[in-house]
């Protein structure tokens, strides 16, 4: 078992955003997580990543507590947020951060981005936030794929990509090491249908459907 959330409850200002959520991610799972806006998808992902202190329940990722052992847990997770954050670091600086904090090689990131037609080498001094939406997303994807993780989490990763970028992205996904589990939050099941083997539907802070496909 890679990750397990047991009876997880979390409220924000009196509203239950996660209501007794139970979720297990096993090795080799490729999950599409769906559900209306505000269902709690981002919240459960953030809880797995150790951003939130849950009110009750238990979370384990690779056997460790994401808050107490955050460094250990995050070593093996790649995460792409819902919207590319307006990071003010230059691309070169962002790459050094990633390289040094997570032992990812810069060459690998260059390689992955080239495969998405993103030329990094000539814009290392450009601030990240000045890239176009699609370019930002591609860079984040390249970083995520370069990290040696056993769990990839994507929070609506293709929202900003043009159709061609999306195609390339899915192409890359087919090459992900099969032993690496993935969790996609998405509204477009049709696009990733061939890539997933399990689908989870969330609504009002609960997992309402969880089935293999």
């Amino acid at each position: 078992m890679l990750a397990i959330a047991k009876d997880v409850t979390k409220s924000f200002m009196g509203t239950k955003v996660l209501d007794n959520v139970n979720l297990t991610i096993n090795q080799g799972d490729r999950i599409a997580m769906m559900g209306p806006n505000g269902a709690g998808k981002t919240t459960i992902v953030r809880a797995l990543l150790g951003f939130y202190h849950i009110d009750s329940g238990e979370i384990r990722v690779n056997g460790a507590d994401p808050i107490k052992d955050r460094v250990e847990v995050l070593k093996y997770i790649s995460f792409i947020p819902q919207l590319p954050p307006p990071v003010k670091l230059s691309i070169g600086e962002l790459l050094s951060f990633v390289e040094k904090s997570s032992a990812i090689s810069r060459e690998k990131i260059f390689l992955e981005s080239e495969r998405m037609d993103l030329d990094l080498k000539n814009q290392l001094n450009k601030p990240f936030f000045k890239l176009s939406g699609g370019m930002k997303q591609k860079l984040l994807i390249a970083i995520a794929l370069s990290k040696k993780s056993n769990l990839l989490i994507f929070d609506e990763p293709t929202a900003n990509l043009d159709p061609k970028g999306r195609e390339k992205f899915y192409e890359l996904l087919t090459e992900i090491d099969p032993s690496c589990s993935t969790l996609f939050i998405t509204h477009r099941l049709d696009e990733i249908e061939g890539l997933v083997n399990r689908q989870i539907y969330m609504d009002l802070g609960k997992v309402v459907e969880d089935e293999k496909i």
């Binding site: 953030r46 947020p81 951060f97």
Partner: peptide, 8 residues
């Protein structure tokens, strides 16, 4: 959120 998703 992004910066802290790395193991620091």
């Amino acid at each position: 959120e992004y910066m802290l998703s790395f193991p620091v």
